[in-house]
Design a binder for these strands. Structure first.
Length: 835
RNA sequence: GGGGGAGUGGCGAAAUGGCAGACGCGCAUGCCUUAGGAGCAUGUGCCUUAACAGGCGUGUGGGUUCGAAUCCCACCUUCCCCA
């Protein structure tokens, strides 16, 4: 830094205390943050006479260290919206908390031997400070921390209610297993197929896991009628749920395994006469029974290899499909044909029935597979003009049934139903609806989470912990040790307990709940933060829920946002709430990236504290909101922040100008002009804020700021209308830059917080002017612009257009074909050469 | 592999069927200043032109329309999420 620079900033600091002329964020931001908190102006009462409640919720953060710039992006926008709604006259509740269970705390424990609890609560402390420095309008009396026993107790309680009502169950699931460490691994702990710690190749292994029965709600989750959500989120959820209608059909294998059949599911039963092979997933239970002695060795090797592959690899279309014969055959019930049974790792045991029928002529994957293994390709849906020759690729579209026995000649669309009817009549299978959605696996083999309240007793089996014994507490000390096992599995005080039923010695469940359970109902606890005997108070839920407006990233489209909807529907059916959907309106903010990549504490850091220190919280908030459309995110760069610094400096300057230099009345034209700008600004800002278009709101306010400066400079507006304009500017700026707006509100003689004031109003009739500029096009190309009276009729507009100088030139030698007038906007004259 | 976005000046962007580039950054020139990493004013898509004016222009190729950044079809690039 140069000497000049140093002395300048030094003098800034020196003057700051008494020179109120200069905008110095550090001098005002802390002051107002303290005052707002002391006065509790953002604390929401459950009922306020004459005001409608508005629950404005933003997805709460995971406290992984600093609140980073991405959080600032998210929370600046959502806070501006909550403030805007408050100024619209709503009784706004805008809570904040911490989603504090989860893997990063465990990683800190694993890497640095820290206690995840200490690590987490230290981070929370730091995050609270940053939230305050942001100037968020949060109601901190409602704060919740999901790793507090008062909170996770209710996760356990809901788990038990779900268990009682058939919505929670335990069954075998595939987990990552490290054979050396003898432990399960989270997906994140598997790097390139090997154990993160010891480098051993990780295998898939079946272990009992807990599930929530979300698939019971698959159809209701497909219905979005009651909620105002972005189309893209609804599309993602719809695709994720993946409802498809089709037919199951069994292929008899009793020749090789008595009494058994292979169940397959297909959406194209019309092609069933074209089945020339059947493929099983390597994990399919029939694999062992069907494999013939000659194939045994090869099949075992193939199955072992498949266990090492990820699903990505196995289902990738880039990779060549592989398969291996079992040596067994099955019978196609439709035509009695005997077709080979193969094993292919591109078939997943967890999807559908874990077996597919191979129809190479009408499925491209099967086609390539059949070519490779020299299997028959039989056309059963004839393409139009098909001469009976070999196909170059699978024919997917509809056609005419051929080689399909009694169904030959039918259009395949009719063949679909006719064949399905026959299958159902003969009880070979039935029409079925399947979903891509699977039940929600809630077991985590981790230690920083909600303990699942279950006890295993040798005599009584799986026993639920009685509600009166909740919460099942996490042990105080959770030190991770080098063997890779969860501390819960080794802590005798936690592990050893007595059976609630028979009183004998028993072991606790050591799995913890997925952290998405915490976030599935946290909004209800915000609405009702205090009860200790119930998860929440019904009257408070009625006052606030469902959430009026919810904001968060679209990366949660198919996990959190689907789980929460399921959770709400389940709670409704169990009698806890009386509404169907948890979040009425959803808005996604985009992702803030830096240098083209996601911001991350480790690999791509961007700490906000230095920026706040240099420019102030208001400047940073506005800059982030000005970067671009909030719902599309933005690419951070330091270069533009000066624009916001200048703008706030100009507001600071204009608001404190001496109005006594202006007269008690101004010129008609200038008054009218300022009035129009004022009402137009309010119209634009109110509309844009409602749509989370903060960038264009700020652009409108920048223009208005300039307008007010010029009006004052020119001196031809009245003091009263100029001052009213300044008030309007401050009120609109308040949600975006809350500290400076509050400071200037006070300095310009107002009493009470600007944040409890109401938005200005506008009169649309005052936003228009007497004349408009019409664009004149010839052949759709702009040729001139003319000034005309605002209410001009079509004929006069076209006449005026035709007499514009530059237009005359372009009409020369042309015959007019058509004249188009778009009221208030343009005239387009369509011509052709006049012979 | 599946799913969802996004491509517009040197840069962030605006405009959702009607004047492409509002607003801001940066840059240039000028004013003010002992000074400027301050402030103010003016200009700034590219090409041709002394000027008037004209041509080109919203990732690429096609289409619909009097008129397309915007709607439709195909493709390319890129980001995010899930497995």
């Amino acid at each position: 830094m140069t000497t000049t620079g140093k002395s300048r900033s030094g003098s800034d600091r020196g003057e700051a205390g008494n020179d109120s002329k200069r905008y110095t964020p550090a001098n005002i931001e802390k002051k107002w943050q303290a005052k707002w908190e002391k006065d509790g102006i953002y604390n929401a009462a459950d009922h306020v006479e004459g005001k409608e409640n508005f629950f404005s919720l933003v997805m709460f953060p995971y406290p992984s260290g600093d609140i980073h710039m991405g959080h600032w992006f998210q929370y600046s926008g959502s806070d501006a919206y909550a403030r805007f709604k408050r100024m619209q006259g709503y009784n706004v509740m805008h809570p904040q908390g911490f989603d504090s269970f989860g893997l990063p705390a465990e990683n800190a424990a694993i890497e640095h031997g820290e206690d995840p609890r200490e690590w987490t609560y230290l981070n929370i402390e730091n995050s609270r400070r940053q939230f305050r420095e942001m100037g968020g309008s949060y109601d901190w009396t409602r704060e919740l921390v999901t790793s507090d026993p008062e909170y996770y107790k209710w996760n356990q309680y809901f788990f038990l209610q779900f268990l009682k009502n058939g919505l929670a169950y335990r069954k075998d699931g595939q987990v990552n297993w490290c054979p050396k460490d003898q432990t399960t691994l989270a997906n994140e702990q598997v790097k390139d197929g090997v154990c993160e710690r010891c480098g051993t190749i990780v295998v898939k292994r079946a272990l009992p896991q807990w599930y929530f029965a979300i698939t019971k709600y698959a159809d209701e989750l497909l219905n979005f009628d009651q909620i105002d959500w972005p189309e893209k989120i609804k599309t993602m959820q719809t695709n994720w749920i993946g409802r498809s209608t089709g037919t199951t059909i069994g292929f008899d294998v009793s020749e090789f395994a008595s009494g058994e059949q292979i169940d397959t599911f297909t959406t194209r039963i019309d092609t069933v006469y074209g089945v020339t092979f059947v493929v099983l997933a390597p994990e399919h239970p029939l694999v062992r029974k069907l494999t013939q002695p000659s194939q045994k060795e090869a099949v075992e090797a193939y199955v072992a290899n498949a266990a090492l592959q990820t699903e990505i690899d196995r289902t990738s279309t880039e990779r060549e499909k592989t398969g291996i014969a079992t040596g067994a055959y099955c019978i196609n019930p439709l035509n009695g044909e005997r077709v080979p049974v193969l094993i292919g790792d591109y078939v997943l045991a967890t999807y559908g029935t874990g077996a597919v029928m191979g129809v190479p002529a009408h499925d491209q994957r099967d086609f390539i597979f059949a070519k490779k293994y020299d299997l028959e390709i039989r056309v059963v849906i004839s393409p139009p003009d098909w001469g009976g020759g070999e196909l170059d690729e699978a024919w997917i579209p509809a056609g005419t049934q051929v080689n399909s026995g009694e169904f030959d000649g039918l259009p395949s669309r009719e063949g679909f139903d006719a064949i399905a009817d026959k299958i159902e009549a003969n009880k070979w299978g039935e029409r079925t609806i399947t979903y891509h959605l699977r039940d929600w696996l809630i077991s985590r083999q981790r230690f920083w989470g909600t303990p699942i309240p279950i006890v295993y007793c040798d005599d009584c089996g799986t026993v639920a912990v009685p509600e009166k014994d909740l919460p099942v507490l996490l042990p105080d000390s959770l030190k991770f040790e080098a063997d890779g096992k969860s501390p819960l599995t080794k802590d005798p005080n936690f592990l050893n307990t007595t059976c609630p039923d028979c009183g004998k010695a028993a072991k606790r469940e050591t799995d913890t709940l997925d952290t998405f359970v915490c976030s599935s109902w946290y909004h209800l606890r915000f609405a009702s933060p205090n009860p200790s005997e119930d998860p929440f108070d019904d009257d408070q839920i009625r006052a606030w829920a469902p959430v009026t407006a919810y904001q968060g990233g679209s990366e949660h489209a198919v996990m959190h946002l689907l789980y929460s909807r399921f959770f709400n529907m389940a709670l409704r059916d169990l009698g806890y709430v009386d509404f169907d959907e948890p979040y009425t309106k959803l808005t996604n903010q985009g992702m803030l990236i830096k240098d083209g990549k996601k911001i991350s504490k480790r690999s791509n850091p961007l700490p906000p504290d230095p920026v706040v220190e240099k420019h102030g919280a208001d400047t940073l908030r506005c800059y982030l909101m000005f970067l671009g459309p909030w719902d599309q995110g933005g690419d951070w760069s330091d270069s533009g922040i000066n624009g916001i610094t200048r703008w706030l400096g100009r507001i600071w300057d204009v608001a404190q100008r001496d109005e006594s230099v202006l007269g008690s009345s101004g010129s008609d034209e200038a008054e009218r002009d300022l009035e129009r700008a004022s009402h137009l600004t309010t119209q634009r800002v109110l509309a844009d804020m409602e749509l989370f278009k903060f960038n264009t709101s700020i652009a409108a306010l920048m223009e208005f700021t300039t307008k007010l400066m010029r009006s004052h400079d020119s001196g031809d507006v009245s003091a009263a209308s100029w001052r009213a304009g300044v008030d309007r500017l401050l009120l609109h700026t308040a949600p975006l830059a809350p500290h400076i707006a509050e400071e200037l509100w006070e300095r310009t003689g107002h009493s009470g917080s600007i944040h409890l004031a109401l938005n200005p109003e506008f009169d649309e009739s005052l936003t228009t002017s007497d004349t408009i500029t019409l664009a004149i096009q010839v052949q759709g190309k702009l040729r001139d612009q003319i000034e005309v009276p605002a209410g001009i009729d079509e004929a006069s507009a076209i006449a005026a257009a035709k007499s514009a100088e530059n237009v005359i030139r372009h009409l020369e030698g042309m015959a007019i074909v058509k004249e188009i007038y778009v009221p208030g906007r343009l005239v387009n004259i369509v011509v052709r050469p006049a012979n």
